[in-house]
Design a binder for these strands. Structure first.
Length: 464
RNA sequence: GUCCCCAUCGUCUAGAGGCCUAGGACACCUCCCUUUCACGGAGGCGACCGGGGUUCGAAUCCCCGUGGGGACGCCA
């Protein structure tokens, strides 16, 4: 049987890191097994679903390169199907109307909680042979409930958590259609997973408790039950649960924040899944290796430091062409236009080795395209009155040489020797004069790329 | 409260009863490289939640605790 997986987000917010990992795993599982990956938007909560959120999810998946073979399907466009199925369930008696009001249910829940019971529907309107149902109240539109079995257990072999068994007595008759007739989540999932021929449901483990109900409904529909793989949650950097209020950020924010998608993808792949000691691998490799057997059942804490390390790696590996495009955009956001001189690719090849973030990289090289922003503390420390004459002598030499790193290096060395100094004694003030700060790559290389004219110009500003 | 799930270095993890004196990676520390800061290289620090079993032998299997998490919606 052909493998078919799906990612089924609800468009109530952006695509966050947890959702992205779920999507990634579902996607990779389909790829690994030469199957199909389906995107389905679960937008039945009309109150909270927004078109902006749909777009944000699409954008996030597109950025990460998580392409889908089918979809996006929108549940709101499948109402007819759901209603048909509900009617048929009503007809054969696997579902029934319930006239209990929200208030009635609310107080029921409260008293059950107080008694230390699990809050659940009391079955007031559940038809039973020999049972007389209450008189149907006027003016109340009923909801439809699924008639769950009350005996026995539901069990499944979860692909990551192992066998899970839940007694039917723990389950109540859930609502599958609201009073306004719209179907609810648990029901739509069941119909869709069935009709779309999903073979493996890979989702967050907050859905574990929904699974037994969904299995029961699938059985009531005469459908084949898919396999389930429940992924544990991702905790924030501080070990706390991610939520809208705390730490949950859009995957697109990582793009904004200077991360390469390769780094984010690689990092996410290793969060909860492993392949021996492998740490760095691309998506092609990942799709070959990926399996459900090596997913950790326990929750994983996000670690920005490690993401940074991966980001540094992928910045080194990126093509100069793509880096050039990316950094040009980021410089533009800083208000800078990249001029032809110095050539950005040259600058990048000098700086990429030391960067672990694209925004950092952009701001680190900004001085090539604008006047250096001098750090006062660095200037005070390195540009001393004693060294200025030496720099002046150097600048005269520099004005007369063939502008290559080696020649520049020789010129500095000569001045260093003539004055019986150590190399840094001259290199450091040059750094501050040219870049504004005391850290940079080899100063001769910086000068070579900056250009003779600009170098001398920046130096002379300190010699007047 | 009830049900369900989880538990190896600070963090991500390897580990399918003997290969474990518990391996790798990030972070941290030391040293090397060096023209500053990085990069890179070499070392180091550092963990099987506790208690009972089962077994010749347990990080691995079972039970009980403890701790953490999730779910209990006319949300998904």
């Amino acid at each position: 049987m052909i493998v078919r997986t799906r990612f089924a987000p609800s468009p109530t917010g952006f695509l966050h890191i947890g959702g992205a990992r779920t999507a990634l795993f579902s996607w990779a599982y389909a790829k690994k097994n030469a199957g199909q990956f389906i995107l389905r938007i679960e937008d039945t909560d009309v109150e909270r679903s927004t078109p902006e959120a749909v777009q944000a999810i699409l954008d996030g998946m597109h950025w990460l390169g998580l392409d889908y073979d089918e979809g996006p399907f929108y549940q709101m466009q499948r109402m007819d199907t759901y209603k048909k199925v509900i009617q048929s369930m009503l007809d054969i008696g696997t579902a029934y109307y319930c006239y209990s009001s929200k208030e009635e249910l609310e107080s029921l829940r409260e008293s059950q909680m107080q008694q230390g019971l699990k809050p659940r529907y009391d079955g007031k309107w559940r038809p039973e042979s020999g049972k007389t149902l209450p008189v149907i109240p006027v003016g109340i539109s009923p909801v439809v409930r699924f008639k769950n079995s009350q005996i026995g257990v539901v069990a499944w072999d979860d692909l990551v958590k192992g066998r899970i068994e839940i007694a039917n007595s723990e389950l109540d008759d859930l609502i599958i259609a609201r009073a306004d007739g719209t179907p609810t989540y648990n029901f739509c999932v069941v119909v869709d997973d069935f009709e779309m021929g999903i073979t493996q449901v890979i989702r967050g483990d907050d859905h574990v408790n929904n699974t037994p109900r969904q299995i029961n409904m699938l059985n009531a529909l005469g459908a084949t039950v898919p396999q389930y793989a429940h992924l544990s949650m991702i905790l924030g950097d501080d070990g706390q649960k991610l939520s809208k209020r705390h730490g949950a950020v859009s995957v697109m924010q990582y793009h904004e924040d200077g991360y390469l998608k390769e780094a984010v993808l690689n990092y996410l792949a290793r969060l909860g899944w492993s392949h021996g000691d492998a740490e760095i691998f691309n998506m092609q490799q990942f799709c070959e290796w990926f399996d459900l057997d090596h997913i950790t059942p326990s929750a994983a804490q996000f670690n920005t430091e490690k993401l940074n390390w991966l980001n540094a790696h992928y910045i080194k590996e990126a093509s100069l062409d793509s880096l050039e495009i990316d950094i040009t955009n980021r410089l533009a956001k800083l208000g800078l236009t990249v001029s032809a001189n110095p050539e950005l690719k040259l600058v990048l090849s000098l700086y990429r080795e030391r960067a672990n973030n694209l925004n950092q990289l952009a701001s680190d090289i900004a001085y090539f395209y604008m006047p250096a922003q001098t750090n006062p503390a660095d200037a005070e420390k390195h540009i001393t009155a004693e060294i200025l004459p030496v720099i002046k002598a150097l600048s005269q030499k520099l004005a007369a040489i063939d502008w290559r790193a080696e020649a520049i290096h020789d010129a500095i060395n000569t001045v260093v020797a003539e004055n019986q100094l150590k190399f840094p004694k001259v290199a450091m003030p040059l750094r501050v004069m040219l870049t504004g700060i005391a850290q940079s790559p080899s100063i001769d290389q910086v000068m070579a790329i900056l250009g003779q004219k600009e170098t001398l110009f920046r130096i002379h500003k300190y010699l007047i």
